[in-house]
């Protein structure tokens, strides 16, 4: 099987779904690029090249470049989704949600409920998130807890190329609005990805490591760190389960609870700001529903409650690291031996 990058996997998912279903369109700032400019067409293919090559194959009618005008085109994507298309709109950086959030959470996310179950809004908003790019406070946030908070939205955090392709195809075929968050630091990661289209169902956590001592729940890029930590601790005789929820909405509470029932210890790793993030949410879930199984206090590994810093030295301190995750696991292992 061919190895593909996270970027290629996403591009392939888009191209295959556009070939399969003529109602699938993509739109966003510079998704092709160079429109109306004197130089090359398809100049960018998205700011980091994820949509490159789609416009030459599918034409400007299905690969729509937009003005820098998120509230209008994200809203247009919502309206188009409610009226017969399957738009995949790219919000370049999730940090820009501030200028189009109404269209996502008050419009697309609520149509179905407000209209008594009669609306179907198969919208996908693809957006880039996460720190580690030296992109500073307005281009580095996670923010997925905010989308997760909104009933009516589904929220997807692919942690690897295989996951990205299957989850994006699922998102496009899904009849509900989906926020699909791509970690910008993962774009060049590679792994084996089938050439054929495939779907990964929402709401089922991926068990990436199976162990008996500690349950590590990690999201997005943090899954990679958690796997590294689990592999490293294996040689020290600490056996970790790693669960990647894949989707924060719906959340696979059952898999998390069942795993904690087995291990009795929980570490949650979340790159999102620490207050009201997925780590607090999952910790509350376990404290409420699996308290009796816990042998140790729950540990949350998250960044500090600050904006994402610019200076590389500070940003590196900010992001949850494998070292911090490893330390948290060792700490919970001191209990209930």
């Amino acid at each position: 099987m061919a190895k593909k990058s996270y970027r290629q996997a996403i591009n392939e998912a888009l191209a295959q779904e556009m070939r399969r279903d003529p109602t699938v369109i993509v739109m966003g700032e510079d998704n092709a690029g160079g429109l109306g400019a004197p130089g090359e067409d398809d100049a960018w293919g998205g700011v980091l090249g994820v949509t490159k090559g789609l416009m030459p194959e599918f034409g400007r009618e299905r690969v729509l470049d937009t003005p820098i005008s998120e509230s209008s085109f994200i809203g247009a994507a919502a309206g188009a989704a409610a009226t017969g298309l399957r738009p995949v709109a790219e919000l370049m950086f999730v940090d820009f949600m501030g200028v189009c959030f109404d269209q996502i959470f008050n419009q697309a996310g609520k149509f179905r409920y407000m209209f008594g179950g009669k609306a179907v809004t198969p919208l996908v908003v693809r957006t880039m998130y996460g720190a580690g790019f030296r992109a500073a406070s307005q281009h580095s946030q996670c923010l997925y807890p905010i989308f997760t908070h909104v009933p009516g939205l589904k929220v997807v955090l692919p942690s690897s190329p295989y996951e990205a392709k299957g989850l994006l195809i699922q998102a496009i075929r899904d009849d509900d609005p989906v926020i699909f968050l791509e970690h910008k630091v993962l774009y060049d990661d590679e792994e084996e990805v089938p050439d054929e289209p495939y779907t990964i169902p929402f709401g089922e956590a991926n068990l990436t490591r199976e162990g008996k001592d500690v349950t590590i729940v990690a999201l997005g890029r943090m899954v990679k760190f958690a796997n590294q930590v689990a592999d490293g601790l294996e040689t020290d005789g600490i056996s970790c389960t790693v669960l990647d929820p894949r989707t924060t909405s719906p959340l696979d509470a059952d898999s998390i609870l069942e795993s904690v029932e087995e291990t009795g210890r929980l570490v949650v790793v979340d790159e999102a700001s620490p207050r009201c993030n997925m780590a607090t949410d999952i910790s509350a879930l376990v404290a409420e529903q699996a308290f009796g199984a816990l042998k140790a206090p729950i540990r949350m590994v998250a960044p500090p409650h600050t904006p994402v810093p610019f200076a590389p030295e500070l940003e590196d301190l900010y992001i949850p690291s494998p070292e911090k995750i490893g330390a948290a696991v060792r700490e919970v292992m001191e209990h209930g031996a």
């Binding site: 729509l64 509230s71 209008s72 085109f73 994200i74 809203g75 247009a76 994507a77 919502a78 309206g79 188009a80 989704a81 409610a82 009226t83 017969g84 298309l85 738009p87 109404d102 269209q103 008050n106 419009q107």
Partner: peptide, 12 residues
């Protein structure tokens, strides 16, 4: 709230 949605319906 409506005008962006209408752009979408018109696009459809």
């Amino acid at each position: 709230g409506g005008p962006p949605l209408v752009c979408g319906a018109a696009l459809s």
